[in-house]
Amino acid sequence: MSDVVFEIKDLYAFYDEHAALQSINLKIWEKRITAIMGPSGCGKSTLLRCLNRLNDLIPGFSLKGQILFRGQDIYQIKDLTEYRRRVTMVFQKPNPFPMSIFDNVAYGLRIHGITKKSILKDKVEQALRMAALWDEVKDKLKKPAVQLSGGQQQRLCIARALAVEPEVLLLDEPTSALDPIATTKIERLLEELAQQYTVVIVTHSMGQALRISDEVVFLYEGRLIEYGETSTIAKTPKHEVTKQFLTGKIG
């Protein structure tokens, strides 16, 4: 067993009065792919966004319980920018910034104080290679990022996240806006990245979870109903809802 990266203890999350998450207890392991699954509205995105503390931005959001990142309560952290560098996030819809491809990847480095051109160049290339995008864009680094295709944009966003050398990569349904070919590319990429990074991915596609994840977490109506190794759960689901999910009755 590897190390625990996140430990979530009795977590409740509220949007105003509405409880989006209830009584979540969960561990996320280092250098594995953990998939968070469940029907839409089950709170899976909320859970993921809690890990990056992105929900802080939403008015009316509140939270009870603890999330420990390597033993430290993340809601006690003062230096959020450094924390978000270590635990960074990729979104459902590709969101390239309105700048060039190069500047997109360099953005994260620049905000964390790296400004030397030669270093930037190296790191950007490295990140783009890791995201398997380098060959496609190396001749047009100065071009606007929005001119890339949807799948390329999403890989660019992954590269942007990788450039800041995070420990954990959070992905919120990263392929739901993409076509099957682009999806396959991203899934392969994630499997490779899992050798170096801890990956947490929210997905509503059972197939995707089975294909790429090591661990799977099932949420249903804000509660955690089952979690463990993907292969075990796929064979012997304990919970009725999980079974229905596996057979495609809920989706």
């Binding site: 992105l54 920018t81 450094e82 996030m89 910034f97 953005y107 905000i111 996240a161 959070l170």
Partner: peptide, 17 residues
């Protein structure tokens, strides 16, 4: 769009960035 702002924040950007 909100997702641009969130994207920047999720990378650890401060207000000015």
């Amino acid at each position: 769009p909100r997702q641009l702002v969130e994207g920047a924040i999720a990378l650890g950007a401060k207000d000015l960035a």
